[in-house]
Design a protein around this nucleic acid. Sequence first.
DNA 1: ACCTGAACACCGTTCAAGT
DNA 2: ACCTGAACACCGTTCAAGT
Lengths: 231, 231
Amino acid sequence: MTPSSRGPSNDLRRAGLTRDRVLGAAVQLADEEGLDGLSMRKLAKRLGVEAMSLYNHIPGGKERLLDGMVDFVFDEIDVPAQDGAWKQELRDRAVSTRAALRRHPWAVGLMEARPNPGGSNRRLHESALACLRNAGFSVEEAIRAYSVQDAYIYGYALQERTLPLDTGDAWRGVAKTQLGDADRELDAYPSTTQVLRHIAVHGFSHDEQFLVGLELILDGLEQRLHGSKKA
Amino acid sequence: MTPSSRGPSNDLRRAGLTRDRVLGAAVQLADEEGLDGLSMRKLAKRLGVEAMSLYNHIPGGKERLLDGMVDFVFDEIDVPAQDGAWKQELRDRAVSTRAALRRHPWAVGLMEARPNPGGSNRRLHESALACLRNAGFSVEEAIRAYSVQDAYIYGYALQERTLPLDTGDAWRGVAKTQLGDADRELDAYPSTTQVLRHIAVHGFSHDEQFLVGLELILDGLEQRLHGSKKA
DNA sequence: ACCTGAACACCGTTCAAGT
DNA sequence: ACCTGAACACCGTTCAAGT
């Protein structure tokens, strides 16, 4: 009568532990509790199993688990098309990358630091480079464009991780609190105070800030592209 | 006859444990073994003491120790002057920041993530903002300029941490090794292969790459500055 | 005031033993 | 083939006890 009794073999149980299931649970645990909260023992408990049995599915231990988790995040990033609209494609990739890193803040410091890049990482890398090459960037300029844009995206994600606030109200509140705390120090840091006052009134938007900076970089790359074509 | 016997009081010993000495030893340990290698127990051993006695000098435990270490790194970054040469001042600050992060790679992910910023951090922040304001940037544009440039600097440091190679020879070697490893995959990743071939021949320079990207951003900020002045 | 030993509640990982 | 208990070598931190 139970559904499982009708399965093809009755030893599948409710377990069916898989590399993918372990990876998914690990990402979820890190999303909820951060990288410090991710331990082999806690992860095992979530999967209804003892810590030692994880090593049957993740051969390299925790280090390889992290490799897999990082590639899991890379897989969530949209791969750019390789036709001529390079600026739009790169902008989309940047927005998509930032969104993935907001969902998985623990990944920011790991994405570019893994010695063994996974398949999703390599495919994304390849597509972005191809997109730039097809648009007319030389190999050298494609490397440069990729480097500058990636530095900006990951650096911005690093900043945003500290204060991932969405609404103008939240920002106004933070600025007012800091102005209240500082009080006696306002004279020593006049420009900082000015900035806090500005945010306390006008708020702040990560969405807008990120996009404006991104546009500045894309425009700079476009100028380099046209400059090199003329030369 | 021994030097110490002539000291003002003989109970100073060789210990004289201080917050500053603990901080210095912690930075050195992290430089040598990375953040994972920094434990209260190992740090204590270096200072000739048991782990528990560190808590007498670093009240908040390891978390506050990290706060202190981060501000130790901020203190090594040159503070920009506040006169009109904003472009040169910001360039110098960027170069100085990257150099500090190369000396202390463990700090990259921590610099902007501490909830309680230290004095050196706040002074640097204030000076950079003041430099921008004095150059004619509005409050809003100063925030933007600071954000874009910092994202680039820290993001670049994040990339560089993975492969902190200095010489063209080292880069050529890495590229050749990767081309050898990949072999069967070269067809699947043609643009990546092209990039590796380019580096295998021409090498690569972090110094140059960082500066070119930095200039692209500074030029973009300059255009925004002039645009807003006219408007 | 500063240092310490013992203890607590955790880690990642190995390995022999189970089924 | 997969899971586990016990064990090892580590963590950060508290606390009562020493001097």
